[in-house]
Nucleic acid binder design. Structure first.
Lengths: 158, 158
DNA sequence: TAAGATGGTCAACGTGGTTGACGATATAGT
DNA sequence: ACTATATCGTCAACCACGTTGACCATCTTA
């Protein structure tokens, strides 16, 4: 039968999506390293973003990221150790320990946004703005709407 | 100034790419679980694919996947434990231990290909074949050409 | 005030990755 | 033929990230 083998095998689509993601993130971190943030790992940018300007607690961070509060707490510990986050006591609730972005963390966040903008411009220069807009729109259509989980290592592996 | 804020912020592009990838892989594994392969993790499909029909050694597998031979060996151990791979001695080289896909592994691989084809059809039904073709072509253009590394957990995290 | 909910941390564990070391075997050079 | 070198597999120790269960401290509520 003529249609036994599809013209485009389906397995390439996820691979290309992953390759695009990875290329972007690798380029980001290459530039971030040059801009004075070599310790930042791909995961860290997402965590910093999730903490936000107002700060949070480890428990709330875990909920935002889709991981346990313990896992969130451990990741915060590492980011504190490299100077991107800080913990302060909450004067209104002695149980809570507020997690806040440090000036260094804010700098990393700001530079990341700039670099991502430049990277997207590189895409529109090569492909044309309509194609990149269409790509984003199509992905928005197909990707699960309320998606956001940051358990990447655990999800992909074990 | 009028162009200070870009119409489309760059940080969404990687997020959408990741969301698309993750949606596809999650859908794949939901169907794979229904088809009798609930133990298969996202990582495992890539490893099975990399072993291929002819089999390999742990060292060569590590090279294909972009990870150390030790890491490849450990992953093979786990896949052997769940029945997707097997190790046999190489009669022509007593140092080598050939890694081969078992019939169960081959079944998982075959079903994965079918499911990916169906998933891609779902995309073309919603977006139109031209849009999906364009999306793939554009990603091929932008993604690093000789990309293939499977150190996802270690890359993203650690 | 007693009871329950919530926040943070500790401990133990699983998976995936790393490097370094070390036998065993194969191959090349003298 | 023998010795040196390269390769394969594995062991051990370690790190990052995730999990669950247990526990104490503290806040909230009945």
């Amino acid at each position: 039968m003529a249609t036994a083998e599809p013209a485009r095998p389906g397995f390439q689509l996820p691979l290309l999506l992953l390759a695009g993601f990875r290329t972007l993130i690798d380029d980001l971190h290459a530039e971030l390293a040059r801009a004075g943030h070599p310790e930042l790992r791909p995961l860290h940018g997402f965590v910093l973003q999730a903490v936000g300007a107002d700060g949070t607690t480890a428990t709330e961070l875990g909920q935002r990221l889709g991981i346990s509060k313990q896992a969130a707490g451990k990741t915060v510990d590492r980011l504190v150790a490299v100077g991107y986050l800080e913990r302060v006591d909450d004067p209104r609730d002695a149980r809570r320990r507020l997690v806040r972005v440090t000036p260094r963390g804010a700098d990393g966040l700001r530079r990341s946004a700039e670099i991502f903008d430049r990277l997207r411009t590189r895409w529109t220069d090569t492909l044309g703005a309509e194609r990149v807009d269409a790509l984003e729109d199509d992905l928005r259509t197909m990707a699960s709407a309320n998606w956001f989980r940051l358990d990447m290592p655990g999800w992909f592996g074990g």
